[in-house]
Design a binder for these strands. Structure first.
Lengths: 210, 210
DNA sequence: GTCTATAAAGTGATAGAC
DNA sequence: GTCTATCACTTTATAGAC
């Protein structure tokens, strides 16, 4: 009477989806080892047996979540990086904006990924951005051109570490930042939104200073 | 006959120290939950029962290691930060060099800390650098002076995030960096050593660009 | 102090009723 | 598909011999 059950687009998620969503939250918050299947079941509002019914095992469920997170990191990036019609500085701005938007929508992703990177080094480091280390990327070609023409003395490793550090680190350290710098959740979002413009400017200043 | 037991400075560590050192390695590598007390015992070359004999429980042992890591983060910093005889730029250089040296000697510390920060938010975030958020620090006074005189439009939160991101992030992401950027352990150390000089230069360039 | 053996509790997964 | 009850195994911690 009040609300008719919406059976079309926005209907209630299936049990399987509910469990997966709960798993994403708990795994992201506590990591793989500290998560008990009972935690996920409780968080999902369903029974422990359902978890095994739908996903067979804790590990298989984790792998599904992991792959989805991995996909978030790579999705849409190839399009930006391989676009012949954009310049190098434009790609920088697009990449930073894209990642900050993605991380604002999925704040737990970096900690999740780093936890994996630092525990299962070999297992999936091959997968991480494996599509991205190609030497044929337009971005890489443009970079070589830029480095050959101008006089960039800074090693590429430094540049990449700077870019990632300036973009991703705030999300990793957000609990400490919010606490110690007296930044509210809302202010944190505003800060990160500012950084979409600022990081590219800073990167250019860093390049110019070397 | 071959080697007489050295009983003075550099004698073999006590069983207690051996277990603690093993715990530090295993906890750093795998995190609290994924570590089994048996792993620590095996790594130390001693028996599982000895761990409980010396430290009562896994949790108490972990807390000891955690506090030692926390101490590494704060130790010596107060001296740098409260030194009336150094300028602000000098403090920046000293702090960056100090942290990079500390992290090169203890590469696992950041991941260890972040794992804790993101799992036990409230428990110890009060302790983290609680001595450092005082408004009375010489560093803070010098900063206020600098900000009032010059025209620094950048918010302090951005500056701190940049400094930490440029300094600490490479250690957090080192497994990925080494793998994806084809950087050897030795080259990584060289890169970080370079950053002791570079980060302060970059920070100044960032400030000037705003 | 150090070991072996074992108790006590936790955890992933399944059987079987509904 | 969903639940309760339970198995099989792991893991922390301790008891007790030496």
């Amino acid at each position: 009477m009040m609300q008719e059950e919406n059976k079309t687009e926005r209907s209630i998620p299936s049990t399987e989806e509910q469990i997966k969503a709960a798993a994403r939250r708990v795994f992201t918050r506590k990591g793989y080892a500290a998560t008990r299947t009972r935690d996920i079941a409780e968080e999902s509002g369903h029974n422990l047996a359902l978890l095994n019914y739908y996903f067979r095992s804790k590990e298989k469920l984790f792998n599904i979540i992991m792959m989805e997170h991995l996909h978030l990191f790579i999705k849409d990036v190839l399009g930006i990086v391989n676009d012949e019609s954009t310049t190098l500085p434009q790609k920088l701005e697009l990449l930073v904006a894209h990642y900050i938007d993605m991380l604002l929508a999925n704040p737990g992703v970096p900690v999740f990924m780093l936890h994996i990177i630092n525990t299962n080094p070999d297992e999936l480091l091959n997968n991480v951005a494996s599509a991205l280390d190609t030497e044929q990327l337009v971005l890489v070609k443009q970079w070589r051109q830029f480095a050959a023409a101008g006089n960039v003395t800074l090693k590429p490793a430094h540049i990449i570490m700077n870019l990632l550090g300036l973009t991703i680190f705030p999300f990793i350290a957000s609990p400490m930042i919010k606490r110690k710098l007296h930044v509210s959740d809302q202010e944190f979002i505003a800060l990160m939104t500012e950084r979409k413009q600022l990081v590219p400017v800073w990167m250019k200043a860093i390049l110019a200073s070397s």
